[in-house]
Design a protein around this nucleic acid. Structure first.
Length: 576
RNA sequence: GAUUCAGUAGCUCAGUCGGUAGAGCACAUCCCUUUUAAGGAUGGGGUCCUGGGUUCGAUUCCCAGCUGGAUCACCA
């Protein structure tokens, strides 16, 4: 990379790097640096009476410096937090040679550099627990200036808040925004908490294919890819349901998977093209049992993360203490609209939609019409955890028919904060019925529903061998994490949310010789490049040489280059 | 995909009713030499997102595009 593209601060840091090397210091040492303490544990456990932590060694990133002559204070941030360090010239340079302090520490180190320190802990006059440094080691020189975020009484100053910057350069976000690190730590704890519960019950964590020849288990548009050796299309999974149920057929009593699923659909603050779902299937259970188990999961996670089931989410308080309300979908519709749609046919449902002002299209079947009414009129009311149960069969092609309510299935969705968090069934295990449901999906597909399911004959074959009565549940881990960490957007709970790639990078540069060949004096080459003409080809496309001459003269003047002014004729000669 | 707001220094942001731009922090030099977001002084740093139009002249006005946010539509 040429220095032309570097900011002044970056150039200064590269020069400092060279100075460090000249002093015989390796700015990127290979050796292990063995630490014996962390910032947080020192701040929590140090006491002057105990006189503990008198030989500590810790490593981290330099986050601020206050230099005052022969002594300095700085902040060191490790994986646990920040602690102040005190660096005194004669301590780190006991002999005559004061280079390490005067030159290396004061001039050549920068905010963002990673260092290791050895010393003892004490309390300053200002009452702050501080590491008195006796030995300082550079572990990694940082070449790019870090945004400097200041903090006072928990309030941030100049905090990096630009979402684009934060998502595209998450590593910087994590460095300067400690609360972001905490969100992701909680995400991991949440998954561990659930895994702990499942393992304690003897359920088996499994892995199933991400590349699937038939994308099944949900209604969604898949990503498609191609396998060269087999010369077949493969789909990135939209769900893993059908594979997990095959494993139940195979004889496992309980299986679960934390799975990345992929759906080729819109992105917004609830949706990312790849997202994480936990799916679990347990033999000999039904959806009633699964509701109890789901309550247990949510309660455990809340307690493990917060020690309480009262969770603040944005401007609301969510009470996650079971039991949660269980309400049949049609009852809820009746409750909010006053209309009992049970047993209505498609035509009648269309009339209801018209009456309620809900848009519908000819492609929408009975199931989708009911779904539209529900989404429009009911979802927004489901702030506190609520199980909506007994969905119409038309939207539930993998669910067992309700044991007593014709036309409905044994399915529930758990809503928290008006969003679907979990989806579960008494699983359909009648292979003949399953085949018929798949055929119905095919009919919907022919009618124009591009999300209708494919027929998975192998799955039907598995059911023909016999699957025990089973209940399965899928839970959106990203959404649950949003609720548990009080984040408004899915992008805030994914380390690297999908972003649109940025446009063209600067194109290849023509070598200096090519510019010289055109008769361009050497001193004008950098200004020309700076104005965006990186190649001679780009110069040839310039239509108004006079304008280029003008721009260059302005650049000359503004940057005080002291070059003689260019005439339009001179510039024209270069170009022709 | 639609509507809308935004994009200016490394970061957070002002500003220019059209004449090539400022602050704080960061950076550099000097003074000070145990500080707590900030000791003092001086200084450097910018394709004002990109392209086109209008204009003698555009970072500013107009149009198009790019990227992001919000809302809506589809979906989990």
């Amino acid at each position: 990379m040429s220095e032309l593209n570097l900011s002044e601060q970056e150039i200064i840091r590269r020069q400092a790097l060279e100075e460090i090397r000249k002093l015989g210091i390796d700015p990127y040492p290979a050796a292990e640096y063995r630490t014996n303490a962390y910032a947080k544990e020192i701040l929590e456990n140090y006491s002057p009476e105990k006189n503990n932590y008198q030989e500590v060694c810790l490593a981290g990133r330099l986050m601020s410096r206050r230099i005052m002559g022969s002594a300095s204070f700085a902040e060191l941030m490790d994986s646990t937090g920040k602690i102040q360090i005190y660096v005194k010239r004669d301590e780190i340079c006991p002999g005559e040679d004061k280079t390490l302090y005067n030159t290396v520490f004061k001039k050549l180190l920068d905010i963002g550099d990673i260092i290791g320190v050895k010393g003892f802990v004490f309390i300053t006059q200002m009452g702050e627990i501080t590491v008195h440094v006796k030995e300082l080691t550079l572990l990694c020189k940082s070449l790019r200036p870090l945004p400097v975020v200041k903090e006072k009484d928990g309030k941030l100053y100049d905090a990096v808040t630009d979402p684009e910057f934060r998502y595209r350069q998450r590593y910087v976000d994590l460095i300067v925004n400690p609360h972001v690190r905490e969100v992701f730590r909680k995400r991991t704890l949440l998954i561990q908490s659930m895994r702990e519960l499942f393992n304690s019950r003897g359920y088996l964590e499994v892995e199933t294919p991400i590349l699937q020849p038939i994308p099944g288990g949900a209604n969604a548009r898949p990503f498609i890819t191609h396998h060269n050796a087999l010369d077949i299309p493969l789909y990135l999974r939209i769900a893993n349901e059908l594979y997990l149920k095959r494993l139940i057929v195979g004889g496992y009593e309980g299986v679960y998977e934390f799975a990345k699923d992929f759906r080729n659909e819109g992105m917004d603050r609830m949706h990312n093209p790849e997202f994480t779902v936990m799916e679990i299937y347990i033999a000999y259970k039904d959806y009633n049992w699964m509701m109890n188990f789901t309550e247990e999961i949510i309660e455990k996670v809340a307690l493990d993360l917060h020690g309480t089931t009262e969770i603040v989410y944005q401007d609301r308080v969510l009470n996650l203490k079971p039991p949660y309300r269980r309400v049949p979908m049609l009852d809820l519709i009746k409750e909010t609209t006053g209309i009992d749609i049970y047993g209505m046919d498609e035509a009648e449902l269309r009339k209801v939609c018209d009456k309620l002002g809900i848009e519908h299209t000819p492609a929408m079947g009975k199931g989708k019409l009911i779904d539209a009414i529900f989404s429009e009129k009911c979802e927004q009311l489901l702030v506190q955890p609520t199980f909506v149960i007994d969905y119409p069969v038309e939207t539930s092609p993998l669910t067992k028919m309700h044991r007593s309510k014709p036309g409905l299935t044994e399915r529930f969705e758990l809503f928290i904060n008006c969003k679907e968090i979990a989806n579960a069934y008494s699983e359909l295990n009648d292979p003949v019925d399953q085949m018929e449901r798949f055929r119905e999906q095919l009919r919907l597909s022919e009618k124009g529903d591009d999300e209708a399911m494919f027929i998975d004959y192998d799955f039907v074959r598995a059911l023909e061998y016999g699957m025990p009565p089973t209940s399965g549940m899928g839970m959106g881990i990203d959404r649950l994490t949003m609720i548990m960490t009080n984040q408004p957007s899915i992008q805030d709970v994914l380390f690297f949310p999908q972003m649109k790639p940025l446009g063209q990078k600067p194109k290849a540069e023509s070598p200096k010789e090519d510019f010289l060949k055109l008769g361009i004096p050497e001193e004008w080459i950098d200004p020309i490049k700076k104005l965006g003409y990186h190649t001679v080809a780009m110069l040839r496309e310039v239509e108004k040489p006079s304008r280029l001459a003008n721009d260059l003269n302005i650049y000359n003047k503004k940057n005080k280059l002291g070059l003689a002014g260019l005439s339009p004729e001179t510039v024209e000669k270069w170009l022709r």
